[in-house]
Design a protein around this nucleic acid. Structure first.
Length: 805
RNA sequence: GGGCGGUUAGCUCAGUUGGGAGAGCACCAGCUCGACAAGCUGGGGGUCACUGGUUCGAGCCCAGUACCGCCCACCA
């Protein structure tokens, strides 16, 4: 073996070998009929692997590798999302740099351009997942724009249409003036912004004075249709029902009462602009007010803004403020910091605009999903996220599914010259109502998440009744970030139930958010991002996986290189102890036939940790499993077992060699899901290996040594006492042999003294006797706790006795 | 504003029905002994954020306070 472990040479070699040998494919090494399926959350087709992907990849790979070793027919489905607005954004920026625009080159050329861009630079993440050692079924890569996938999306839309779930409505939506499309609430990011709050007085028509309102956007005064006050607000009770004159446009508008108004804010009187504010839209609807629009899709003032038409909002704000000042209706302006909605892709300010969009009602579709969650047929982990998922479904608003983009799935909606609307796929020959053949397709595309929602089954061939769909659906686990629950997870659940007749998976892991080391969010714009590939390059994939799994326990965790370094240490240690055993076991074959105390003990420990790790994997507690494996390797296997058998290995004891190989084999099996590369590399050098470790059978429970797990404890206690006091307590022959192998005489005692140790033990005895002498404790504490305390007291007394205390 | 989570050693974090306060890193001391100096052995270091409560007993349970973070959100 090489004298030192080199992950940079070993890891890529195994990654290539596993894939070339077909061991990443679905069902590789299967020994039973049950399936285990995870569909990877499809990353953006233009994106690069970030820390969240790496963390999520590591923990999904652990589950996949573990089940593969257990003999399941395991499938980890890879692929990409076309990411409508995000991808369109990338290509539009390129066009801008080239001095042109999507509008200039036209839709067809633009879409072609996107495809070309993807061919050149897209689809890089799966290569990066390979570098992490992620055992995805790369031969099955899918893309949400694949022909077959488009079929599924079209079928889903027409199905929803036929169910009567699709409708078109003029509503106020979040409008991105840069992309010129509606986006959903979930795509809006709120950010603090410094504005001015303008106080303007609106005179009453009857000349009886005026009412003052506060606004952050004076330009929208042009679309005001009312002033609203809270019905309980005594200051304004008298003016409800009066009419005011809207400044600038000098339009007559009523004062209405509505409890949506917050009496605490500003003056307690609100100008009502249904065309440009969601709250006002709602007030307008309740009071049957007209909806006026003065801002266009490009964010500028439109033709209804009269003299201000064509101005930017900033310019229009200034013009209106100037008008107010001139007419003595400007009371004051003050600085005002508040949260405003921005587009999550381009960070431009969102414009609430009234617009005609397609919607999917959620009343019906959510019901079976809610039932599935309540009956725990789908379970979110941790439990707090389950509650959140349920609440999200309970409060779910209708889904705006149309986007005014060019990159995406165009709606299968057709208009005839007479205005009839039909939804069909493929393109119908003629209008169903009037027979006209001059059908025009709706230009809008579907929300990206409309297609993502089908991921667990469209990747398996739905709507065709394929062999894969029958075998691998429903899947088992889905793992994702917290903010994706409403965008993706819940939607997969109700579409799965509706379209395929069953939930797509039974467990949803909501993994931790990895923050930058300083506690801030990792983000490109903040410059706080850490590239997981750089971490892999520096420390190796195994170490990175270990570190990420260790960081997966809490809701938010700061990225710590220390955790990765710990993983690297573990890989090196494992490599070295394997070297010790292999160099001294020539000619031996792995055979667990333990005679000696330390052999029974390590095999019992290996089995205890196997059980512990299985339990942790099963409840998705990755950090606990990884910690147990670290302790097993360092403390139990290397520091005690390997040291104890060293003298026997040097003497070419065949039993020691055979058992050591068997124990090492078991250790490698347990570690493989976390550190696949270093374990496979060692496995390949074991004598009489039967298969690759990646498909080797996971160890069965080993009950032979039950009770032997404590066999070494006496030796460890003796070592402790010896180090503290220099006194060797009574040991039998085997125990003495181990003691002498592990504990070096010249180090005894390092410090402390017999007297000090006796004092320490006497203190412990006093504490223990105090507890046991307390009747309340004996009466109220659980019996096993009391018994445990008695056992401790007996041990302290024994040790005191041995020391002559 | 709402929801969720956090506050334990210098740092990053464990602590599983309430009963000995821990790991890794960092630090200090001593070790080239036939796996490993990316190592080995030992050591120092904590008012478990704060206040009150329940209990024989609280890092853990309850109430409140402070600070931090994430997610969500229609205060113009």
């Amino acid at each position: 073996m090489e004298p030192s472990y080199n992950p940079w040479e070993v890891e890529p070699r195994w990654q290539e070998a596993w894939e070339a040998e077909g061991l990443y494919r679905a069902g590789a090494g299967k020994r039973r009929d049950e399936t285990f399926v995870i569909a990877v959350p499809p990353p953006n087709v233009t994106g690069a692997l970030h820390m969240g992907h790496a963390l999520n990849g590591a923990l999904q790979d652990v589950l996949i590798r573990w089940h593969r070793m257990r003999g399941f027919d395991a499938l980890w489905q890879p692929g990409y999302d076309h990411a409508g607005i995000s991808t369109q954004n990338v290509v539009e920026k390129q066009l801008l740099e080239e001095g042109t625009s999507r509008k200039e080159i036209g839709r067809e050329a633009f879409v072609e351009r996107v495809w070309r861009h993807l061919e050149e630079t897209g689809r890089t993440i799966m290569a990066q997942y390979r570098r992490l050692g992620a055992s995805l079924a790369y031969d099955r890569e899918r893309f949400t724009m694949d022909d077959a996938y488009v079929e599924a999306v079209m079928r889903f839309f027409v199905h929803s249409w036929e169910r009567g779930w699709i409708y078109r409505a003029n509503r106020i939506v979040n409008w991105c003036p840069y992309h010129e499309t509606a986006i959903s609430d979930l795509e809006v990011v709120h950010a603090p912004m410094d504005d001015m709050l303008t106080f303007a007085s609106y005179p009453f028509v009857d000349g009886s004075g005026s009412v003052t309102v506060a606004t952050a956007r004076p330009a929208t005064i042009l679309a005001d249709v009312a002033v609203a006050v809270h019905p309980e607000d005594d200051r304004y009770r008298a003016i409800v029902g009066k009419d005011v004159v809207v400044p600038f446009v000098e339009r007559r508008a009523p004062v209405v009462a509505d409890d949506l108004v917050d009496p605490e804010f500003g003056t307690g009187a609100l100008k009502v602009t249904p065309g440009h504010d969601p709250v006002d839209f709602e007030i307008g609807r309740k009071h049957e007010l007209p909806t006026l629009t003065v801002i266009g899709p490009d964010g500028r003032m439109n033709e209804d803004a009269g003299p201000l038409a064509g101005l930017t909002q900033q310019e229009a704000d200034d013009a209106v403020v100037a008008w107010l000042e001139e007419h003595g209706q400007l009371e004051r302006r003050e600085p005002y910091r508040h949260n405003v909605g921005t587009c999550e892709r381009c960070h431009n300010r969102i414009e609430p605009l009234v617009s005609l969009q397609w919607w999917l009602t959620m009343d019906e579709p959510r019901k079976p999903a809610l039932a599935a969650l309540r009956e725990r047929r789908v379970r979110y982990h941790p439990e707090s996220q389950h509650q959140f998922a349920v609440r999200s479904l309970e409060d779910i608003p209708d889904w705006n599914v149309s986007r005014q983009l060019w990159w995406g799935h165009q709606l299968p909606i057709w208009y005839c010259p007479d205005g009839h609307v039909t939804s069909a796929w493929p393109r119908p020959e003629a209008c169903a109502e009037c027979g006209s053949a001059e059908l025009v397709r709706d230009p809008d595309v579907l929300d990206t998440w409309f297609s993502s929602a089908l991921w667990p089954f469209a990747t398996l061939g739905w709507p065709e009744d394929t062999k894969d769909l029958r075998r691998y659906y429903p899947g088992d686990v889905n793992s994702t970030a917290r903010e994706i629950i409403r965008l993706w997870e819940n939607r997969m659940i109700w579409t799965g139930i509706e379209l395929v007749g069953d939930v797509p998976f039974h467990d949803v892991i909501v993994h931790s958010t990895v923050l930058a080391p300083d506690g801030r969010r990792m983000s490109k714009s903040l410059g706080t991002g850490i590239d997981p590939l750089e971490i892999i390059d520096e420390h190796g994939a195994d170490a990175t996986r270990y570190g990420l799994l260790k960081m997966s326990s809490t809701q938010d965790v700061r990225f710590s290189v220390g955790a990765v370094a710990e993983g690297r240490k573990l890989a090196t240690k494992l490599w070295n102890v394997a070297r010790l055993i292999l160099m001294n076991a020539e000619g031996a074959a792995p055979d667990a036939r333990p005679q000696a105390v330390e052999e029974r003990w390590i095999l019992a420990r290996l089995d205890a940790v196997r059980a512990e790790v299985e339990e942790a994997w099963a409840r998705f507690d990755f950090a606990v499993a990884v910690k147990a494996l670290f302790g097993l390797t360092f403390d139990d296997f290397c520091d005690w077992y390997a040291e104890a058998i060293k003298p026997r290995l040097y003497e070419d004891d065949p039993d020691a060699a055979a058992t050591a190989l068997a124990a090492l084999e078991r250790l490698l099996l347990l570690l493989h899901p976390v550190m696949p590369h270093v374990t496979e590399e060692i496995w390949a050098q074991l004598p009489a290996r039967r298969s690759r470790l990646i498909v080797a059978p996971w160890p069965e429970p080993d009950v032979r040594f039950e009770g032997d797990s404590d066999a070494l404890e006496r030796v460890r206690d003796a070592a402790e006492i010896a180090r503290r006091s220099g006194v060797l307590v009574d040991l039998d022959e085997d125990e003495r042999r181990i003691f002498e192998a592990v504990v070096r005489k010249e180090q005894l005692p390092v410090n402390g003294s017999r007297e000090g140790e006796i004092a320490r033990l006497r203190k412990e005895v006093a504490r223990s006797e105090g507890m046991l002498g307390n009747d309340s404790f004996v009466a109220n504490a659980p019996p096993d706790v009391v018994e445990g305390e008695r056992e401790k007291l007996r041990r302290y007394r024994r040790e005191l006795d041995a020391l002559g205390g």
